[in-house]
Design a binder for these strands. Structure first.
Length: 303
DNA sequence: GCTCGTATCT
DNA sequence: AAGATACGAG
């Protein structure tokens, strides 16, 4: 990075966000932000303007995704309230009667309680990530633990594994998080098997279920699906695919985000739970050679 | 000629 | 992909 190029360190960014919030999003213009931030960083109005552009753009994306996630949640809840999957659904179930795989009926268990994983083993879902640190407001973090001081993963190192993101740091760089999320790659779309995680981190991370009604960021960004239709052996699924013709990347992301938030609801079409094989091999990698049968029955393995 | 927002470039 | 620069509008 050139010496005359601004390095937007987390601290600097935090100050920036602070100023923006202080002004209000609509009144936050470069000159005013610059005023509030003072001259100690030797920033120009152009620097601020450039950063503000990025900031707005990322925020916009975020909100679009949240909106979609919310709509997904709504649809899935309607579907769940209607009684879940029905064999005679085609008669009048509507488009949300879709094939789902492997989750217990809604209400059969409290969130996360029946995920059939042993204590100390990760349930096969992953946690939304965090983007564009915000001291307050929409970028609030998950309630898993205090959002306070956690180390920022050094920018020059490889992105941290998802488990190391812990409760997201504030402020964080979008690119760090984006990269980390993207690391999960296409498999995240269909498998959602978390990367290896040390037991201690695991225990802390999954100690508390997400707060009901809390909508964490669906900040989870898998690689876009291949141009060809998602392979689907199921005919009903194929029908649904036609209805949904070409779901946007945002839709897919939102759907995933929603599933991650409410894993106890049926999976929407196109999302598959991790295969038994992948779960087993993942566990094996973590040094857990064999899982009792009971632990696998709810994995929805037949993908 | 300035500020702002957006597009484009490096 | 982050940050700089160009450019048109007000």
């Amino acid at each position: 990075m050139n010496e005359w190029q601004v390095d937007w360190t987390p601290e600097l960014h935090r100050r920036f966000v602070q100023a923006v919030e202080q002004l209000g999003l609509d009144k936050a213009v470069p000159s005013r932000i610059l005023e509030l931030m003072g001259n100690e960083y030797r920033l120009t109005r152009h620097n601020i303007a450039s950063h503000l552009q990025k900031y707005r753009s990322h925020r916009k994306h975020l909100m679009a995704r949240e909106a979609e996630a919310a709509s997904w949640t709504q649809k899935r809840q309607m579907y769940a309230a209607a009684g879940g999957p029905r064999k005679d659904a085609a008669a009048g179930g509507g488009p949300w009667v879709v094939p789902t795989v492997g989750f217990p009926p809604p209400g059969a268990m409290p969130p996360h309680a029946g995920m059939a994983h042993h204590p100390g083993q990760p349930p096969p879902f992953c946690r939304p990530l965090h983007v564009w640190g915000h001291p307050t407001g929409v970028d609030a973090t998950l309630p898993l633990s205090p959002p306070s001081m956690l180390p920022v993963w050094p920018r020059h190192l490889a992105p941290p594994p998802a488990w190391a993101q812990q409760p997201p740091v504030d402020p964080v760089y979008w690119h760090q998080q984006y990269n980390a999320a993207r690391k999960w790659g296409p498999q995240a779309v269909t498998q959602c098997v978390p990367p290896p995680m040390p037991p201690a981190a695991m225990m802390q991370r999954f100690a508390a279920p997400p707060m009901p009604g809390m909508v964490p960021h669906p900040m989870y960004r898998p690689i876009p699906p291949p141009p060809s239709p998602v392979p689907q052996s199921n005919k009903v699924a194929g029908l649904q695919l036609q209805l949904d013709a070409h779901p946007s990347k945002e839709s897919i992301d939102a759907a995933i985000g929603d599933v991650l938030v409410k894993p106890w609801l049926p999976l929407p079409l196109g999302l598959k739970p991790p295969s038994l094989d992948s779960v087993m091999s993942e566990l094996h990698k973590q040094g857990i050679p064999k899982v009792p049968p009971a632990a696998t029955t709810n994995c929805g393995g037949a993908a």
